[in-house]
Design a protein around this nucleic acid. Structure first.
Lengths: 140, 140
DNA sequence: TAGATATACTTGCATACTCAAGCATCTATC
DNA sequence: GATAGATGCTTGAGTATGCAAGTATATCTA
């Protein structure tokens, strides 16, 4: 049995870490009634100009398929965290806009996720956290 | 709108990166007829003494629930990549053992995933890869 | 040694996606 | 300006999980 290459063990290592992390984030966000993916949606919207994006832009932003976005957005619309809007010059696109309520939930959830992220990053010194962010940025 | 904390943006950054990575790994592994999760199963087994583990150990090893393991294992058994075995002293546990065929598929898939991991890590120098592995190890 | 509790699974039901196909609309070409 | 192709989105069907509840077996305690 040959040794694992460092790159492969890096990948496996990331895998284990990630699934753990997502579970923790999801469970902590559940008090706000949203999942991590839904948080990502709200986050994307909140960063967008006018706090609105087309569904395709949103899909790219959160790394989901177009159909995934459609299905994910339905419940968020139902509870009025986001709203539909139309583009005059193109009847195909259906814009998604962060509602006032949505923006508030996002802020609250961000607080919660912030704590989660702190716990996550706690084993590292601030200097190391910077390093890690830098290394990850190079990978993207 | 307050600024994102560095920890939170670290978490969001990892999220985006990870979903990308898994998709690439899955698509490259598909030529061997297995998913990344299935690869993880085979990997866990191959590292275990006697190349066998109980389903619970396997679940912990790959970060899945017990039921997830049960369902994942069914098709792997059907195509004879793994085999069932029993423990004499405890009739509850059902051991899973890597078969000869399974070990072969694992080796092949590992090769493929190795390339994938290399591509992934390519933007980093070997020194940086080491650093990254070290930082991730601290997080676990 | 009988019953209570814990453990190792499995199964039913729900959720969160994906891909392929379909529909509406836009754009470009002749 | 008709028609062919591209684009944005939705929907149907399938896959990959998780959680809660159920079953079988083991262990502990009175």
């Amino acid at each position: 049995m040959p040794e694992l290459t460092p790159q492969l063990s890096l990948l496996l290592q990331s895998a284990a870490l990630w699934s753990q992390l997502i579970k923790r984030a999801d469970s902590q966000l559940s008090v706000h009634g949203i999942s991590f993916t839904e948080f990502s949606i709200l986050h994307c919207l909140s960063q967008a100009p006018l706090q609105q994006l087309s569904r395709i832009e949103l899909a790219n932003g959160v790394g989901l398929s177009a159909s995934g976005v459609t299905r994910l957005l339905a419940p968020l619309e139902k509870i009025h965290l986001v709203e539909k809007a139309q583009v005059a010059r193109d009847a195909r696109v259906s814009l998604v806009k962060l509602s006032t309520v949505g923006a508030q939930i996002y802020q609250d959830a961000r607080q919660t996720l912030g704590y989660c992220a702190e716990q996550f990053a706690a084993p590292l010194t601030p200097r190391q956290q910077e390093q890690l962010a830098d290394l990850l940025a190079r990978l993207a």
